[in-house]
Write a protein that binds this DNA or RNA. Sequence first.
DNA 1: CCTCATACTTCACGAGAATGAACTATCCAG
DNA 2: CTGGATAGTTCATTCTCGTGAAGTATGAGG
Lengths: 152, 152
Amino acid sequence: MKQWVSLMRDYGWELSTAVVLFHEAIARRLGLNAAEHKALGLIVRSGPMPTGTLAPELGVGPTAVTGIVDRLARAGYVRREPDPTDRRRVLLVADESAVPDLSGIFADLGREMTAFMAAYDEREMAAIVDYIENTIRVLRAQTVKLADPDPS
Amino acid sequence: MKQWVSLMRDYGWELSTAVVLFHEAIARRLGLNAAEHKALGLIVRSGPMPTGTLAPELGVGPTAVTGIVDRLARAGYVRREPDPTDRRRVLLVADESAVPDLSGIFADLGREMTAFMAAYDEREMAAIVDYIENTIRVLRAQTVKLADPDPS
DNA sequence: CCTCATACTTCACGAGAATGAACTATCCAG
DNA sequence: CTGGATAGTTCATTCTCGTGAAGTATGAGG
């Protein structure tokens, strides 16, 4: 069992690198820099959100968000909509239709993932899900620890 | 079996996000931007390499590498050494000793990963390794496809 | 040797993006 | 209704970083 440890360490590193490079490739394909890509991801996943919510998530000041959203809006990936409940606010809504060739990439990705995962039985699948869940948990914990140098 | 598919899609997204945020947190902790972090990773993993090798990997011109390496060298993460076989070249060598608090993070990460992985038996472990291998393969393939918009 | 190519650096410049102050519009508490 | 707080934007400024041209040093072929 001991030999798995170093093996997994290498695999973890390679997977991590592959994920990062994949993200970078997507951003480049969309013509977005890191901050814009991150912002778009947040808007797509967390649904319509006000501008102010984005600033702390991105780690930039509120003024920078205006520029980031300007570029995303100009590219057509998001649009600004007034918040009906608070007219000071501007809700950022992802424009799904404006991601032309990327849907093909994600479709390919999903198809290929599904293809090789079809070979797993229930117990193997459960183990994989467990592995992923725990990896996410551990990564998040270490990320928090990295952001907070002095946990007093 | 069908319900796994959408479940895995969400997990894939979350894992991917966690990995990216972890990388960003490391870079910030080291005081490095994306290019510098990427360069350091390449030097650490692929051993001593000449400056010129880095430029295409980072997607920048050779002149930019000088600045990137300057910052890495000033921070103490790498040092320049003359190539004994070709005195025009400058070899970039990672300085392992200059990563103080980060070794603790990686030690924690490895320990926690090892901890929950101890519960898997051989067959489960094999499934997980297979999953990781295939995911890496698929991600790399899609990354290439993204970089090359017109595969003629 | 002499010439040309290669490896890296230096420098001046320019593009991109984040910042803080100031401004407008809106909400809310008293 | 009035004063103060909040949401977002605009503007001028500043900073970072990559580029291209030019310079230095070294290697390789005739």
